[in-house]
Design a binder for these strands. Structure first.
Length: 108
DNA sequence: ATTCTGACGTGGG
DNA sequence: CCCCACGCCAGAA
């Protein structure tokens, strides 16, 4: 929470454009800990209480909505993404390559 | 203080 | 191609 690590994660996640998704590893890489992808997920867990952090836009490397179970409803994450124009099928982001937003590439 | 687990990712067998 | 193990850091029991 107070740790700068979470702040970094929030900063990146918060910058994810609407209708786009990113991966935990991509964020981890951006903040300087490419192998700490787990922490990114953990940070999201804490972030899920914050409205400022669109945790629903963060999926795993496969494009799977792995964290959907942590949301209020199992469909909430998918609903939010679909609402933004992201097509989801069977917990998987369709056209993942197209909607994928890499903070290292797009954000610099 | 110690131990385990966790919304991942990569590498090796 | 499928399965297993390791690494990373932080928080909770």
């Amino acid at each position: 929470m107070d740790t700068n690590f979470f702040e970094k994660v929030y900063a990146v996640v918060c910058q994810i454009p609407e209708g786009r998704v990113t991966a935990y590893g991509a964020i981890a890489r951006k903040i300087g800990s490419p192998q700490s992808a787990r922490m990114v997920g953990w940070a999201m867990n804490a972030a899920h209480t914050r409205d400022d952090v669109p945790a629903h836009r963060v999926v795993n490397r496969q494009g799977l909505l792995t964290g959907k179970h942590h949301f209020d409803g199992i469909n909430l994450m998918q609903q939010l993404l679909e609402n933004e124009g992201v097509e989801i099928k069977n917990n998987q982001v369709q056209n993942f390559d197209r909607v994928f937003w890499d903070p290292n590439t797009e954000l610099s």
